[in-house]
Design a protein around this nucleic acid. Structure first.
Length: 696
DNA sequence: CTAGGGTTAG
């Protein structure tokens, strides 16, 4: 084993006049001083020196010393030293105790050397339960869940019974590979072994059920825990968050606080993430208060999540206040702040902050780019992409998807094709995010052939989003029949979403296709899809455009809640069917329900006045727009007034109106005025309009 | 002695 008898030990032996043969007789004096020296090294943290002394002494040492050496090797991840300690142990102790070999396995595991751990485990002449625990835990923590579970099953087959340690490790591995059936079996074993009250095992069960997406069981398990500790609460909050049940996650967090369990930093940060996902700013502020009260502000992660909560809830002032605090200007917070301004449309401020960043990564670049795209600033977006390519080597799938969005916005299929090629060459070929953006680009730019070809090439990894993109691109280009065909085809591969239905109904409305529209409505009813306010608006729109106003009204009346957009769909639907009186009646109901009208509603009102010939009423509404409804009249409102006065021969009012408008009349307006003058024989205004038209 | 949860930005 390469252990030399060194000079010091020889001298020692001579001085004490011992016979140099059996090392056992040497032990008391010689070993004692060596042990002391090793212990001294260990106490001062000199692991290498301690091991080297041990390695150079060809004598056995007390087992407790080996145990301590393994312990230190574990915490320092010192694999070389661990191997030396083990080889020394097996060389000089003819039958090393099992527990020490178990320690060795654990140490190898902690050092990440699973091969060493397994080799030792296989070579052990005898094993106990601890040996199994050691190797299973080593695999579980080393990311080899399958191997851990394999050994766990093997152990059970051999009749070795597990304890709480075994089950905890096995459950951890079950969670990693989503082994639900095995988890339930282990649950049974835990009950059988009388370990039901063990809070660690119970929390692990909550965790594993949640990871396998069986929240009902996770929840039941959680409520079975007599005294859930901070980890148990953390698990249940995290599982709800991962399941997209943010309300439940936040609720559990406050429950935890209510029963006086001090939340961990992770739990606080997870709860804040839950708040930001559902824009629960009120709850977020409460958590903020709690953070201050419990003094966990100095934790970087807590503060970052808090800041992001404010960003996501669009409370940029509070986010900025945290960002401006002394120690909080790190890369993550900086990016979050840039993103906050960017998604709020304040792209100039976002860019200023971005330019000041001392360091950036791909996420920072993407955050800024998202802002330009969200607010249709395509030229700025494109310049920014070029700058990014010049200044940074970073590019990932999000960047590529965003660049494709820019191509879509600029209608630049050539650039899009270049991105396609780039993705192919750089291993993003089968990335779904990129793939769907590519599909969207081809489709929205009207290149339906390429869209279909790419869609076909994606057939092994496409998802529902891909189907929706293909469908939308056909619907948007007036190919409603094809869109319907795609809709029926997609059933064989995936299920439609509300986006699917929204697109399809809009497609039907655009070409006044009643029959397919009714089919979709029927499909949704038969299959129990929720008719939310958006879909309801699309249905109202479709039915009214297809001249089935009674159906539209029926759908409208069935709504449990109505937002402004739904009201507007109904108002415009009535306009479209020349039912001016109904519009005016609807407007009354709308005011009664306390829904504030917007510029579209008022356009509907004016259109209704036009078709009913209510000139005076129309004028009243127009005049009260900015004073009563706080809506600045737009071009289309002025057009309505010109139509209203012109059609019913109110020529003096018309003259007064066009000449006092705060902007120059458009060609369309002048033409309308001219036509009205001709019909109602109003020479003076007619000449004026003709002259203005000639000047343009 | 060995076991559970797990971190913020696009």
């Amino acid at each position: 084993m390469g252990v030399n008898v060194n000079a010091a030990s020889v001298l020692n032996r001579l001085l004490h006049n011992n016979t140099p043969k059996p090392s056992k007789t040497l032990l008391p004096t010689n070993a004692k001083s060596l042990t002391n020296s090793i212990v001294a090294d260990l106490n001062s943290g000199h692991l290498r020196k301690a091991v080297s002394v041990l390695f150079n002494s060809p004598i056995p040492f007390p087992f407790s010393l080996y145990a301590r050496l393994f312990q230190l090797c574990s915490s320092k991840h010192a694999i070389v030293e661990a191997r030396k300690v083990e080889s020394h142990l097996v060389s000089f102790s003819p039958t090393p105790p099992i527990f020490l070999l178990n320690r060795a396995i654990e140490t190898y595991g902690k050092c990440g050397c699973l091969e060493d751990a397994r080799e030792l485990f296989d070579e052990m002449p005898q094993r106990d339960g601890g040996s199994w625990n050691a190797i299973i835990t080593a695999y579980a923590q080393g990311g080899c869940a399958e191997k851990a579970l394999c050994l766990f099953l093997c152990m059970n087959r051999l009749g070795v019974s597990g304890n709480e340690i075994t089950f905890a490790s096995a459950l951890g591995s079950c969670g990693a590979v989503l082994a639900l059936v095995l988890s339930r079996q282990i649950h049974g074993l835990i009950v059988k072994c009388g370990l039901s009250g063990n809070v660690i095992l119970e929390s692990s069960l909550v965790d594993v059920y949640g990871k396998c997406r069986v929240m009902s069981d996770a929840r039941r398990m959680f409520y079975e825990i007599q005294k859930p500790n901070a980890v148990s609460w953390n698990v249940i909050v995290r599982r709800y968050l991962d399941m997209g049940q943010e309300r439940e996650a936040v609720f559990m967090f406050f429950e935890m606080v209510r029963v006086n369990v001090k939340p961990l930093c992770f739990t606080v940060s997870n709860s804040l993430v839950a708040c930001s996902r559902i824009s629960a700013v009120k709850e977020g502020i409460q958590i903020h208060g709690l953070i201050i009260k419990t003094n966990i502000e100095e934790y970087e992660v807590v503060l970052s999540s808090l800041m992001d909560m404010y960003v996501k809830c669009r409370d940029l002032e509070n986010a900025r206040r945290i960002f401006d605090m002394p120690r909080s200007k790190n890369l993550i917070n900086w990016t979050a702040m840039v993103s906050g301004y960017a998604i709020d449309g304040r792209t100039r401020e976002a860019r200023e902050l971005f330019n000041e960043m001392p360091e950036r990564n791909v996420i920072s670049w993407n955050a800024m780019l998202v802002g330009y795209i969200r607010f249709f600033q395509w030229e700025e977006a494109l310049d920014f992409v070029f700058l990014m390519r010049k200044q940074s080597k970073d590019i990932d799938y999000v960047t590529l998807g965003l660049i494709l969005n820019v191509c879509t916005g600029l209608w630049d299929v050539e650039l899009g094709k270049q991105v396609h090629g780039f993705s192919y060459r750089h291993g993003f070929y089968s990335n779904l995010f990129v793939g769907n953006a590519l599909l969207d680009m081809y489709g929205k730019c009207g290149n339906l052939i390429s869209a279909r070809v790419w869609f076909y090439q994606m057939s092994h990894w496409r998802d529902r989003v891909s189907w929706n993109a293909l469908l939308t691109s056909h619907a948007r280009h007036g190919l409603s029949e094809e869109a319907m065909t795609i809709f029926w085809e997609m059933q064989g591969e995936t299920t439609p979403s509300k986006y699917t239905f929204g697109t399809l109904l809009a497609a039907c409305a655009n070409i006044f296709a009643l029959e397919p529209g009714r089919q979709i409505h029927g499909f949704m009813m038969r299959n129990g899809y929720e008719i939310d306010v958006v879909i309801r608006g699309a249905l109202v729109d479709m039915y009214s455009k297809c001249r089935c106003l009674e159906y539209a009204i029926k759908v409208f009346k069935e709504a449990t809640s109505r937002d402004l957009i739904l009201w507007n769909s109904m108002v415009l639907g009535c306009c479209h069917n020349k039912r001016g009186e109904d519009v005016l009646e609807l407007f009354g109901l709308m005011e009664k329900e306390g829904v504030k009208p917007d510029h579209i509603t008022l356009q509907g009102i004016l259109l209704a006045c036009i078709c009913e010939g209510r000139v005076e009423l129309g004028r009243q509404y127009f005049n009260s727009m900015s004073t009563k409804f706080c809506i600045i009249p737009r071009l289309e409102h002025y057009e309505c007034m010109i139509e209203l006065f012109g059609r019913y021969g109110f020529m003096d009012e018309l003259e007064d109106f066009v000449k006092t408008m705060p902007f120059e009349p458009t060609v369309q307006m002048l033409t309308k005025v001219f036509d009205a003058c001709r019909e109602h024989r109003h020479l003076k205004l007619g000449e004026w309009a003709a002259n203005r038209l000639n000047e343009i």
